[in-house]
Each structure stands twice: as structure tokens, then as C-alpha cells.
Amino acid sequence: MNEFLQGGLYGGGIIVAIMSSLLFVLWTERKMAARMQSRIGPTFTDPLGFLQAPADVLKLLQKEDIIPEKADRALFNNAPLLGATVAIAGAAVVPFSATIVGADLEVGVLYLLAVGALGVLPVFAAGWGSNNKFALLGAMRAIAQSVSYEVPLVLAALVPVILAGSMKLSDIVAYQSSHHWLVVWPFFLGIPAFGLFMLAMLAESNRIPFDIPEAESELVAGITTEYTGMKFGLFYMAEYLHTVIASAVASALFLGGYDGPIAPGLWWMVLKTGLLVVAIYWLRWSLLRFRSDQLMALCWRWLVPSGVVLVVGAAVWVVFAG
């Protein structure tokens, strides 16, 4: 078959699938948060408030699009698009099952990290372009945060790469299904690396307790302060996309990906990703927020050194025990 056609089909299919999964994610989060707070959550949009997310999108689509007079129009208009694109680009290399994978690159992990690092661009563009002090402060925080947390993220992702001896995500999953899932054995490397990866991912996707770039109580709405309608909606979506894809990547790297007994691979992948997403939201709705300097201290004082130790440990393990 024509390669472009195939790519388009695959890509389109995956994008549609992930987008529709957002519906579940949004609903789950809102309902879960409500339950945690002894509330009920959306009920007016039947069934069980399930159509809340479509209603939100429908509404956002109808809102006026305001561009502040003094904003940098090019940056301001393109930042949301870029944000959503970058967020979804990571999905290209994630193996959802042995056969469903957009592009099984040789350098899959590298690609993921590169795309993740790009995520800071739209944030900065939005913060700078809006010509708003709150947005600017938020953008500055976000840059400092993303750049710092890039390091532990890379270090944590290196551990499975070293153990599996490949940067290809499907190889890493294959390694785990032929040996053990990384969090099972060698657990003393796998579990810390997994934790580190999740923490750094949370920080990268700006979720509580690392959501300081858009800290509502301090910076009104951070980088999105000036955004209206669907432009804000794109940012909103990108945030959730980021969480979902980060969870998918984490489950591929550490939890054995689509490997699992009985059920087909896709189910396992969805299950693992879903569990991780729920865990992230659980954290989000029960923790307070760090201050930015504390966040940096956490990164450079604890996460980076432990990441280095883990990488060295992985190398030693491969040489002597692997």
C-alpha cells in the first residue's frame, strides 16, 4: 500500500482514538474529583454527565475570539495550535499493541524526548505573545521548570533503554515481555526509575503538584490568562493529551506496555494507561502546590542525582547481571 496513505490512515485512526479517549478522561476526572470532594459532579448532561466534555467544546467553539490589542498576533494565535500538535505528536511512536503503532522508529525514545522538550515552545509563545504580566510570569516559570525537569526525565528514560539495549519502544516492550516488566525485575532499578519518570512527566505536563505555570490562585490562569474560546480549549485539551500520552509512554517503558496474559495487547495498554491517568488525577486532587524555587530545588538536589545513580546502576546491572 502507498506509504503515505498508510501513514495517514494510521495517524488519523490514532488521533481519533486518542481524542475520543479524552472524553472518558475528562469525564473520569471530573466525576472522580467530585467524588473525592463529596460532591456529585456533572449530572445535567445525561447520561451521568457523560456529555459534559462535548458540551464544553461546543460552548468554547461558540465563544468570541478575542485577541488583545497589544498582543503579538503571530505568537498568540499559533501557540495553542502548536501546543496541541506537540502534545499529540508523541502518540506517533507509542506502541498501543504489537501491530498498532504509528511509526516504530529506531530512535523512538529519543523522538519522544525531543517532542516533549518542544512542549515548552508553545508555552513560551503564549506567555510572551499575550502581553500580560501574569502570562509572562507563568511562561517564565514554565520554561525554568521544563528545562530543569528535562534532565531527570531523560535520565529516567535511559534506564529501560540501557536495560533493553534499544531505543525502539517496541523493542523495549518486547524485552519486557521476554524477561520481566521493569517494575517487577530488576525492581530496585525499575520502580525508582518509574517513579522518577512519572514525577518528571507530571512536571513537564504542568500538573499539580507541579502546576505552578498556571497556578490559578497566584497567576489568575497563567499562560492562558488572555485566551478565549477554542484557543483556550486547545490548551486545555493539550494538557489532558499530554497526561494521557505520558501515561501511555510510561506504561510502555516500565509496565510492559501491551504485554499481558489472556486479553489482547491493546486492552492491556488501555488498562495500564488508564490506571496511571487515574493515579495522576488522584494526586492532583489531593495535593497542594509547590513553590517554583522549591520545585527547582527538588529537581536539582534530589531528582537529578538519583537519576544519575539509576543510570549508572542500570549500566552495572547490564554488564554484570544482564
Partner: peptide, 13 residues
């Protein structure tokens, strides 16, 4: 929140 109301801190949204 049952009505789908979110409280936004910025008037833009």
C-alpha cells in the same frame, strides 16, 4: 458543578 459550571478566575474564559 452538577450543572457543568466551572469557576474561572479569568474573565476571558
Amino acid at each position: 458543578d452538577r450543572m457543568g459550571v466551572i469557576v474561572r478566575a479569568t474573565p476571558r474564559q
